[in-house]
Design a protein around this nucleic acid. Structure first.
Lengths: 212, 212
DNA sequence: TGTACATCAGTGAACGCGCGTTCACTGATGTAC
DNA sequence: TGTACATCAGTGAACGCGCGTTCACTGATGTAC
């Protein structure tokens, strides 16, 4: 493929520059949003001339794809690590909030308005499944929720539920949608001017979803 | 100001063309997102040449501002009309979903990832308050929710709550964030591949928030 | 009703800009004998 | 250890494109006497 082999100094340098490019790309996304990401602007910041970037990424779409994939993987890793360290559902909720606030644009790139005309790579669905698996396991460990019409409906669509019961499915969905609801409105600035502390609203939703 | 007086044929024609421009602008937003909105492209669709639009809007920002304001006002009107027709909290929830699904990009323009580098006009905060007032009134009409730590916190930030108790505040926030959580994930396509019907998840959240 | 003037809508050319991407090329770095 | 060659990183010029916006101008539409 013409690519240098892994482990060689050249390959190490390559990986380093790729990371540097991604770093400036994230900076740019943070300030102007994903749709304003410009290869030329990144090159200027990095001290190279535009076409040089094409040594590292085939084109703009490939760069964006990699950023999105990295973001998904980062969240999946965070969840897996916390769960492995013994975190329960409330612990995952806090981890999610920390992860979102650490880099709002990264969160919005994953769960915000889709980048227009851009289709998520197939990779992400696999990582999404991994995130969901961790979440479902944590939900299954909670005291079971009372049956509901929604659970009956979910029982008919169990492809993504693994070995866990419909109650865990329902709880996982509530976890996801409710916490996303608070987070995305907070990150978009819709609570500014209302005075209250979004963290307390978040905590209340966590309590409601864990059923304590 | 050089503007023709209202009611004259010229002014009627002016308003008509302005609406036509906005119509194509919405079409464009629907297909490519708000950040891709282009005056030249709109002019081409409408059969005029680019600079002609400057007779109707001072610049691109003014057009976007007006679209956002219109979207807010449309939602506020929908809420007010339904509430005046006797709708309860569950009725407002259905109205919200209908409004969102009728034009997803309109919903995302209001509650989605903010347009990068764009600041919402002051108008919107007034309309937001109107929406919140309708929502709070409907919440206050529901059976009171049990006290909670969040309610105590909200009681200290009552500027936006009008005459309604903290319980209504809490319920209004839960209504807003939970339904937005489901809607925005649905509109962004994050439920595709999971098989279940988003409407049923939405209904379950409506039940949970109305406390039935 | 007719004429003289002002107002306004829309055009076409032009501005500078930044974008993604290609291409031929120069130097440096690695590899093989 | 030294030489010959291949590989790779990065450059600079150039491409076509579409953008927002300005400007001077042409015609049509309205208004005032």
């Amino acid at each position: 493929m013409g690519k240098p082999e892994a482990g060689t100094p050249r390959e190490r340098y390559r990986a380093q520059v790729r990371e540097e490019i991604k770093g400036f790309a994230w900076e740019q996304i943070a300030t102007a949003g994903a749709s304003a990401l410009s290869l030329n602007a990144i090159a200027k910041q990095i001290g190279m001339s535009g076409p040089a970037l094409y040594r590292y990424f085939a084109n703009r779409d490939e760069l964006i794809t990699e950023l999105i994939t990295d973001a998904y993987r980062s969240l999946a890793d965070t969840f897996r690590t916390r769960a492995a360290a013994g975190a329960d559902l409330a612990g995952l909720a806090l981890a999610l909030r920390e992860w979102a606030l650490a880099d709002p644009q990264r969160y919005l790139l994953v769960y915000g308005t889709p980048v227009p005309g851009y289709h998520a790579p197939a990779d992400t669905t696999r990582i999404t499944a991994e995130i969901m698996a961790t979440l479902l396991a944590a939900c299954a460990a909670e005291p079971p929720a009372p049956p509901s019409p929604l659970q009956e409906h979910l029982a008919e669509h169990r492809d993504w539920a693994g070995p866990h019961p419909a109650g865990a499915q329902q709880r996982a969905l509530a976890f996801w949608t409710r916490l996303h609801g608070v987070l995305s409105l907070e990150l978009a600035g819709h609570f500014t001017g209302m005075g209250f502390d979004p963290a307390q609203l978040y905590a209340a939703e966590v309590e409601a979803v864990t059923g304590r």
